[in-house]
Nucleic acid binder design. Sequence first.
DNA 1: AGGTTGACCTGTCAGC
DNA 2: TGCTGACAGGTCAACC
Length: 271
Amino acid sequence: MPELPEVEVTKQSLSPMLLGTTISGVHVGKPLRWPLGVDPKTLVGQTIVGVRRRGKYLLFDLDAGLLLLHLGMSGSVSVSQQWPGPLGPYDHFELQTTSCWMRLNDPRRFGAAVFAPSENSPQAHKLLGHLGVEPLEAGFTSDYFAAGLAKRAGAIKQVLLGGDVVVGVGNIYASEALFMAGIRPTRGAKRIGRVRINKLHQAIQTVLVRAIALGGSSLRDFKHTNGEHGLFQANSQVYGREGQACTQCQAPIKRIVQGQRATYFCATCQR
DNA sequence: AGGTTGACCTGTCAGC
DNA sequence: TGCTGACAGGTCAACC
């Protein structure tokens, strides 16, 4: 999915429903990417005192510990205040609280629900420890971004996806931000001039903020907690538009593969 | 140490 | 209609 905007939109809708409620039941379905790491029963009785996002992880602060949810490629979360019926074949994790049910539905099972005793525990550190700065927080300055890119010889698209310089920029928004900044996805990160780095820094924030406002993208099966699809898809400038005319210059959009992932760009507008 | 590749798992869609 | 292969939002571990 689930890039930063989708996770952020999910967090925003989950938060008011879950905050302050107490877990009364936990159901674990088929194995996800990682095991929960604790007997589900130990979560019962704990109150959800915080709902946060870090990169593409949803974090639920409990009285004693932290629950991390990742949506992988195909995950989505639903919450409802009435019993949503029996678990479906792809509902692999469910939290029942004193006022609602929350389910993680994930056909491909690349997602995960993991318990960590604290944010500083090894369990949490393994997943969160290497993450770069949040693109929409104050730490993401263009100076920081330029310093991060200066150390990286690899293609800028793959550095963005790596998540150790800046988190949350996934395959769709990496293509979109690079188009907005006029930078070719294959360009070595350290070979981008400062003026263009500033443009990319701005483009990443613009693309993400816009996507959040539109409710996240919805290329396939992403759904919000209320079951509605996002609207970003209709706003895509390059992603998924191979062969179609560039919105700036009319040249056909190209598709290449980098690191086994599809990249879309305009060979005229992006250098 | 940074860069690259494979693996995880299953649904959908295009093409024959 | 049915089968096969390509492809899909992510990210870690294991290599060079």
